[in-house]
Nucleic acid binder design. Structure first.
Lengths: 148, 148
DNA sequence: TCTAAGTATCTTATAAAATAAGATACTTAG
DNA sequence: CTAAGTATCTTATTTTATAAGATACTTAGA
């Protein structure tokens, strides 16, 4: 096990990361089911939480929906009080979408168990390892488009 | 940057991983669009590729669909020659789903660019780092359900 | 063995969501 | 000032997912 050669190590990593991605998609799907949203809506909420605010156009790009599809999704989320549309001061054709703070908390609540597990795991991870992983993932996040 | 304290490091990691997950969902969505499938179908294909074979029931669990939904999805994928249903020798109520090998390759082709980037990145990652990351992700993959 | 409960998949009617094509309103370059 | 470009929205249609229940098989227990 500690004498794994490079090719096997590489293969092991690819397998682990694919498993991680498949698991993440499933987990987000399950959280969405509990919350009463679709995975697409969940992705939208997650992106909004990371960006703070976004235009419908940005959300179309980060969900893979058409702009028409985004409008319908936003109507749905607005009606259910998850988000709010505010005028975009930079462009009068456009709007900015923001999460309604009370829903932000409520949605986060559904990730509570996994976050607790993650916190516990990180707490017992040696700092040097965590630093290595952070460095590694900083690069991983640039692989997809050359830097989105 | 090298004097980051523990809390900040922790927070940085959580941010990176959330970004990675959101990016992965988007990327899989985009590949699905190119292939002409839905994200759900893509998730099904990915799970099948990892497991080799699976029953519709297992696929229901790993996609978040109802069993009826899985049947419809499998009809769709079977009609488009992505998968095939074979009898389950262990249980006559059940079937086993397998990817048709020619489609396996074709779908993998759409991941080619990212795989190339990933290979190049891994090649220049020090072996000790890669070992740390593998160890780390082996644990990460157990956090979700306590071990799926 | 026989039966009842449980499990695995499938069927179908209905509800929900995504797309495509195009409209409206605004912005920007020339 | 005008034309081209951009951002969002509208709506009809297609596609997908759900829910409720049917069918066929398995398994545990009398």
């Amino acid at each position: 096990m500690s004498t794994k050669n490079r090719a096997v190590l590489h293969e092991t990593f690819v397998h682990l990361i694919r498993r991680f991605i498949a698991g993440s998609i499933l987990y987000n799907q399950q959280v969405a089911d509990q919350v009463g949203l679709r995975l697409t809506d969940m992705q939208c909420m997650n992106v909004l939480e990371m960006l703070g605010r976004a235009t419908p156009g940005q959300l179309a790009k980060s969900t893979g929906l058409t702009t028409g599809g985004v409008t319908v999704m936003l109507d749905r989320l607005e009606k259910a009080a998850y988000i709010r549309r505010v005028p975009n001061p930079k462009d009068r054709r456009s709007v900015l979408i923001e999460i309604r703070p009370e829903k932000m908390k409520s949605v986060q609540g559904f990730y509570e168990e996994i976050n607790k597990n993650l916190d516990a795991f990180l707490a017992e991870t040696p700092e040097t390892d965590l630093r290595t992983v952070v460095r590694f993932f900083t690069r991983m996040n640039t692989l997809r488009t050359g830097g989105a």
